[in-house]
Design a protein around this nucleic acid. Structure first.
Lengths: 124, 124
DNA sequence: GTTCGCCTTCAACATATGTTGAAGTCAAGC
DNA sequence: GCTTGACTTCAACATATGTTGAAGGCGAAC
């Protein structure tokens, strides 16, 4: 007797449900699927069905976009996530995203610091 | 007798010179001027002439774009820079940009941390 | 077994960030 | 004072990130 607990791996959510969960438009959900941020199965009638992680991926993607990552880059980071991600899988992805954000901030700081301390200041 | 030292404030550089200094295409230099990242005077013959800070502003803008700031946002930050910016003016701008980058990274960390520790994990 | 809301695709539009090319002008060196 | 390379504008194109609308199909509830 298999557990009925339907957790991740069950592709049951419609585009509209995921959109509402993630706080984006349905068109955006389709866009993210086309670009590999989320994955879907199809019903017999060709409608998309998403699993529970879809809205989460989208929310993370929106925050990651704010630190300069492109949709393509985010999709590449998410490629690390198995179909049914465990918390440690999310942990790895989180570390990856944070490291990237910090690297970019470090690059900004380095450039500005160089400007400030360099013999040849930018403006002066 | 005024000093001949031509520092910032002298609008003498052509589009091509600024482009070469900043490591971007001439078309990008015109784009950044249109969008308020840099300012230009015009010759009698209507050609643009930039000051020494132009290439610097562009380089800073490129790094700032990597941490998720839009051209419009960068232009707003640069609005703080007087025509002939002193090091402390650049310092203020630098602090502003770094603070913005760190705020966005903090938002990313907060969201990911919440996901990890929240009772309702994203995926599980 | 019909209805009605949500789903499908596809193309057009919208904004951000640029690049390219055509047609013509400017300016610096010879 | 010509020549020539770099400049001008403007429109079209290109890519990223979506939204909107038309025309039609699916599915759950009654």
């Amino acid at each position: 007797m298999t557990a009925v607990t339907q957790h991740s791996g069950a592709f049951t959510l419609t585009v509209g449900e995921v959109a509402a969960d993630a706080g984006v438009a349905a068109s955006a959900v389709r866009f993210y699927e086309q670009h590999g941020i989320i994955r879907a199965e199809r019903t017999a009638g060709d409608q998309r069905r998403f699993d529970e992680s879809a809205a989460c991926r989208i929310r993370v993607a929106k925050v990651a976009q704010r630190v300069g990552l492109t949709v393509r880059e985010i999709a590449e980071v998410f490629a690390d996530l198995p179909a049914d991600p465990r918390p440690q899988d999310w942990g790895r992805v989180a570390e990856h995203l944070i490291a990237e954000a910090e690297a970019r901030t470090a690059a900004l700081k380095a450039y500005l610091g160089e400007m400030r301390s360099g013999a040849k200041l930018c403006d002066l």
